[in-house]
């Protein structure tokens, strides 16, 4: 009976399509949740950097740096990006003492800001490109989630301090061969 096969075909297609819809909805939700999580993480690391900068500023009696750190900590969402940029500029202009633990913390937190921002940007891009898909827009899946925003700041990289060097042995022990991993 050709009629029945037709029905079966439609049912199978409908099943595949609804599975695809479910998978898409899940994917869109996952991408949005991740972008939000990345935003919270980036926020936390920016706070830490500002706090670390404030400590360095207090030690070095640097009024300008302290003010920039304070402004970054207190900035309203709309002013956040420019406040963070100001702080980055201040930080890139100062000389840090490699022996100072506060300076090392500051470098470490800055590195984490760079990473968090990189990941945040990638995840926001993924979420936005998912929102642009025709199917997602037709079904209104994009309206169920808040639109993620890029956090547009200059790359907050600080130059690495020279690492703490462990002096290598000047003369190797004779006859002691290193073991190769392979």
């Amino acid at each position: 009976m050709p009629g029945m096969w037709w029905v079966v075909g439609v049912v199978v297609l409908a099943a595949i399509f609804s599975a695809y819809l479910g998978w898409t909805a899940q994917r869109v939700e996952r991408l949005h949740l991740r972008a939000q999580a990345a935003e919270r993480a980036l926020d936390a690391h920016l706070m830490r950097r500002a706090a670390a900068a404030a400590v360095v500023a207090e030690q070095g009696d640097s009024v300008e740096l302290y003010a920039a750190a304070r402004l970054a900590l207190d900035a309203e969402p709309g002013d956040r990006e420019s406040a963070e940029n100001d702080l980055t500029r201040q930080l890139q202009g100062i000389e840090l003492d490699p022996g100072d633990p506060a300076a090392r913390t500051l470098i470490a937190t800055s590195r984490r800001v760079v990473l968090a921002r990189q990941v945040h940007t990638d995840l926001v891009r993924d979420a936005l490109s998912a929102r642009r898909r025709v199917l997602v827009r037709v079904l209104g899946l994009n309206r169920r989630h808040q639109r993620p925003e890029y956090f547009d700041i200059v790359e907050p990289t600080l130059p690495d301090l020279p690492p703490v060097v462990v002096p290598a042995p000047a003369h190797p022990a004779e006859g002691v061969l290193p073991t190769a991993p392979v």
């Binding site: 999580a37 919270r40 993480a41 690391h45 090392r104 984490r112 990473l115 968090a116 990941v119 703490v164």
Partner: peptide, 25 residues
């Protein structure tokens, strides 16, 4: 540090720095 960033971006947990201690050389 990249691992920590990835974990944070997946569930929003933010770690304390203690377990990724830097610069001890």
């Amino acid at each position: 540090e990249v691992y920590a960033t990835a974990i944070e971006a997946t569930d929003g947990r933010v770690f304390d720095d203690e377990w990724v201690d830097h610069g001890k050389g």
